[in-house]
């Protein structure tokens, strides 16, 4: 079954302001950014370095907070939450896919995937069953005992994706998920993300420099100097 995005805004940014202090001066990144993303969407965000892509992703992930404006995801006001509340919200509602996978090298693939489940009151047996299921979903059935160092970049990123979806979050944030991969591995990962969006209804926000990666998204937003300058929908 292929899902289509609900048209109701699910992620909403209104008049978001954000700046960084450099010495005594504050350098503005966003001076009133507006954005709406419906549930089930797959949005690629592109733009030159310094355009604010990472800052936007950090705010969506709740690891950074806006200086002003509102940031709402699924009814939760992230802009008014404290750090620990955002941390708890993140653990229950989103998964993050990192550019360099960020797997813990001393843990096996399965143990890495299990990490987000440790935050929830789930019995060990159930945790293992869920880990096996998602590893199978990302095409790594039977590879759970392998350590990351023995896996290719593409396989490691699949483990990263499995870790991001193991708690079945509604939202996936991907930061240059193919930035460290060769073309073939990158396409496999992007196909995986598309599958998660189309078949499982995950809302995905992906920051990327790669125009080819952006074609896998439903739409692409171009960010420049803290403003969206262009929106392109997938054919």
């Amino acid at each position: 079954m292929t899902t289509t995005p609900d048209l109701t805004p699910w992620i909403t940014l209104q008049g978001v302001r954000k700046g960084f202090r450099i010495g005594t001066e504050t350098v503005p990144v966003f001076s009133g950014l507006d954005l709406t993303i419906p549930r089930g969407d797959f949005v690629a965000i592109m733009g030159p370095s310094g355009s604010g892509k990472s800052t936007l992703l950090n705010m969506l992930a709740g690891i950074d907070s806006p200086d002003g404006g509102t940031l709402q995801i699924g009814g939760a006001r992230l802009d008014s939450m404290g750090e620990s509340a955002r941390s708890a919200w993140r653990a229950h509602n989103m998964g993050i896919v990192f550019q360099f996978y960020n797997l813990l090298p001393m843990l096996t693939a399965a143990e890495n995937v299990e990490l987000p489940l440790l935050l929830k009151p789930i019995a060990a047996g159930d945790r293992r069953a869920r880990v096996e299921k998602v590893l199978e979903l990302v095409g790594l059935a039977g590879r759970g005992r392998q350590y990351p160092a023995l896996m290719s970049g593409g396989q490691q990123q699949r483990v990263g994706i499995a870790r991001a979806i193991v708690t079945d979050p509604a939202l996936l944030l991907c930061d240059e998920p193919t930035g460290d991969l060769d073309r073939k591995s990158a396409d496999d990962v992007l196909d995986m993300l598309r599958f998660l969006n189309r078949e499982l209804g995950k809302t995905i926000v992906m920051v990327t420099h790669d125009p080819q990666a952006a074609t896998h998204a439903r739409r692409t937003l171009h960010l420049d100097k803290g403003q969206f300058v262009e929106e392109r929908k997938a054919a």
């Binding site: 990472s54 950090n58 993050i96 990192f98 360099f100 960020n102 930061d175």
Partner: peptide, 8 residues
Amino acid sequence: TAALRARG
């Protein structure tokens, strides 16, 4: 933010 862009 160190986690998002750092090579582990």
